[in-house]
């Protein structure tokens, strides 16, 4: 079997497995899985920039928050329906990531980390500044009745699960496709050796900018989905820890792999859940990862068993 069909098969198998999960898992774990899929979208968006393009951002909470507040405020204050709400979330994230990308990409390395961190911090403070509308840290809830798409009540557990799964599947296949296109391969080339890619005649800045925008918009989709499916928005989601989380998920799962972000999100969720919400566990895992498995779970699997893994 060719690598490409293997990859398609893997992604399809994963979606099918997730469909089955809904029917076989206990309610609690099925509920968790819906959350995990939403955050895995965030991690996949982050992975596109970090894992594939090699740009370490510490400010993705800004994009997640842009999606969340884009949808949240449009529905909460603008009174729009969920469909246009999602669109508003995506557009907000797109614009924000475009601006941030345009500016931040003038830097690289540690300076890029700091600039993205600064922009995210400014974004977080802006949510507080406009507390009259956003209600700052406290945030707001979307009434259950408004959280419906084409007549489907998204606050219902099953509908929510499958809505999350559909979004997750779309993003998974999109990224699986994207990284195999010439554009995607160029991103990897930039990660591996930026100078060489430049020498080969690629427009590095343009590629990177598109990568930031795609990554930011996917992250925004996750934020919008969270707000819609779980019904609330708070400034905390735009704060520093939420910039660290996708980094953690991606590193744990395996950077530069298509399903690594999901695996990382899943593991991290259950690690924290199992430890009673204690972040100490996250710390120990990170140190252990850096020491023993710098390429993450899927990176290790790929190295040992399945070199074709996307």
């Amino acid at each position: 079997m060719s690598d490409i069909s293997r990859i398609h098969l893997l992604h399809a198998a994963m979606v099918v497995a997730l469909v089955i999960c809904w029917f076989v898992l206990p309610v609690y774990h099925a509920g968790n899985l819906a959350r995990i899929m939403v955050f895995a979208i965030y991690a996949m968006g982050y992975n596109l920039l970090f894992g594939y393009t090699g740009l370490l951002s510490l400010g993705h909470a800004l994009f997640f928050g842009a999606g969340m507040y884009g949808l949240g405020l449009a529905m909460h204050l603008g009174g729009v329906f969920a469909g246009p709400g999602i669109l508003a979330g995506l557009i907000t994230a797109l614009v924000v990531s475009g601006v941030v990308g345009f500016l931040a990409l003038r830097t690289s390395g540690v300076a890029f980390m700091i600039v993205t961190l600064m922009f995210a911090q400014a974004g977080y403070l802006t949510v507080l500044l406009f507390g009259t509308y956003t209600r700052g840290d406290e945030g707001f809830v979307l009434p259950q009745a408004t959280r419906a798409l084409m007549g489907i009540d998204l606050s219902d557990a099953q509908n929510r699960y499958f809505a999350a799964l559909i979004l997750f599947g779309i993003v998974l296949f999109f990224i699986g496709w994207l990284v195999r296109t010439p554009f995607g391969r160029c991103l990897v080339a930039i990660r591996e050796n930026e100078e060489r890619a430049r020498m080969l005649g690629y427009d590095i800045t343009r590629h990177k900018l598109i990568a930031v925008i795609l990554s930011g918009t996917i992250s925004g989709l996750s934020g919008a989905a969270y707000c819609l499916l779980f019904g609330s928005a708070q400034a905390a989601f735009a704060a520093v820890p939420y910039s660290i989380f996708p980094l953690l998920y991606v590193l744990l799962g395996g950077m530069g792999t298509t399903i690594g972000p999901f695996v990382g999100t899943l593991f991290m969720f259950y690690l924290i859940d199992w430890s009673g919400g204690n972040m100490m566990v996250a710390g120990v895992v990170l140190v252990a990862l850096a020491l023993f498995a710098p390429t993450g779970i899927l990176g290790e699997i790929r190295r040992r068993f399945t070199p074709w893994l996307p």
Partner: peptide, 13 residues
């Protein structure tokens, strides 16, 4: 960076 983020959480907790 990864390891020191880990240390950050360990020390904090």
């Amino acid at each position: 960076i990864v390891a020191t983020i880990g240390l950050l959480y360990i020390i904090q907790q």
